[in-house]
Nucleic acid binder design. Structure first.
Lengths: 227, 227
DNA sequence: TAATAAAATTAGGTTAACCTAACTATTAAA
DNA sequence: TTTAATAGTTAGGTTAACCTAATTTTATTA
């Protein structure tokens, strides 16, 4: 029996682990993410450990088991399918979509998700470039990487963003950078890693390393030197 | 703060009151309906009374206040909109629809319901003829009444059913009686109130009073003698 | 109407999911 | 390396939503 709370804990572990792969997922991280207090998280972690969905110890933090990851990816799948549906079919704005999808993702009906997925045309990525896991919990593969990893002269295409905050998305809109736009990295500032970019519509766009880390791109030339 | 449980209790009171208008809604009725035990219901009723959503005493049973009725009708609205959407747009069968709508009706987003309602074309009735309350909780009016109230010779059209059980719906399918079909009441048996009916496709259909009570019709002639 | 059945109610208990406060262990800073 | 700050943990408490068992009312029927 998976309650929506349990699903939310597993999703939180998944998302936190993916957000910063070098860091362990601590009870405090989860607590902040879910807006509860650490003892609540500890308590729930013990249950999830007993159920075989996560492992936990102080040093490695919380880690999903294969079963736990399956569940988490299924929720991510449902979330992204609903977001896409709300955005593309029901004309919600991207900023409205998340909150409703947070609720819809817990609706327990595989058939419903299948039908909605059909309606949106079975895409591999959602409108912000996030991959939609398949039913088996496999993520479609892509060469997406942060723009910040580019080298000078790189030509790449914007496939998504890692950060979905309104302020960040508005910032991109201002810079006239959108999904599927092509970027050329004109220059990289050695001091603060800021970039100078150009697009078809705009030249000499200045961007901080911080922002570049949140933009996911793919090189256009097959054997580009970017890692 | 309305939780989905609270919504379910209010909906239960509404539905039980409408199911048999002559009877009071007892804690035991609610308990059976929601598959919990009577003490649980008593406890929740006390809370709902305190919140001003219902009144309760042993003799009159539970009754919705205006506020309570508003909430209940809003859930009924959401339920019927989702059912219609699932049935008409996503091609679910009628028997699958209810269970999923029971979950979807608790999604908290007026905008979402508005959009879905647009998608299905803002109908006043769901595919089984049940009225969809408007946003203000008003039911569209109609002259629907049970077929059992007909008099001999009455010509009427089937607008819906009060009972949605699979066995009953299959029975109607067998008799080739469907939504919007026109019926003529050929004869009424004075002993057991059973009816003899005819439709365009079939004559001399025999139907028990019990079944006729569950079929909702409207007279075709404006000044029909049926009450 | 007395006996019985059924429904309503009360008392008291459980579990999940939250909390605060206090304590311990770890990490960072002076 | 001692001190201070932060993170993890334990103990114990609360509330909502369930429950069972026992009791009191109300309704039914012999």
């Amino acid at each position: 029996m998976k309650t929506y709370r349990e699903e939310n804990y597993l999703k939180a572990v998944y998302q936190l682990a993916n957000h910063d792969k070098s860091k362990t997922v601590s009870p405090t991280d989860i607590a902040n993410w879910l807006e509860v207090k650490p003892p609540t998280v500890l308590e729930k972690l013990a249950i999830l450990v007993k159920k075989g969905y996560v492992t936990y110890n102080k040093f490695d933090g919380a880690k999903l088991t294969l079963t736990g990851k399956d569940i988490a990816l299924n929720i991510v799948r449902r979330h992204r399918i609903w977001e896409t549906y709300l955005y593309k079919e029901l004309k919600f704005s991207w900023s409205e979509v998340h909150e409703i999808a947070e609720q819809l993702e817990h609706i327990n009906s595989d058939k419903l998700i299948d039908r909605i997925y059909d309606v949106i045309g079975n895409p591999d990525f959602d409108p912000h470039g996030d991959p939609i896991p398949n039913k088996q919990g496999k993520l479609p593969k892509s060469d997406r990487r942060p723009l910040s990893q580019s080298i000078k002269g790189c030509k790449c295409v914007v496939l998504g963003v890692s950060e979905h905050s309104e302020v960040f998305l508005n910032y991109l809109t201002e810079l006239k950078i959108g999904l599927n736009d092509k970027l050329i990295v004109e220059q990289i500032n050695a001091y603060d890693d800021s970039l100078k970019l150009s697009t078809k519509t705009k030249e000499h766009i200045l961007m901080s390393a911080k922002a570049a880390q949140q933009i996911l791109v793919q090189c256009i030339k097959p054997n580009c030197a970017c890692k």
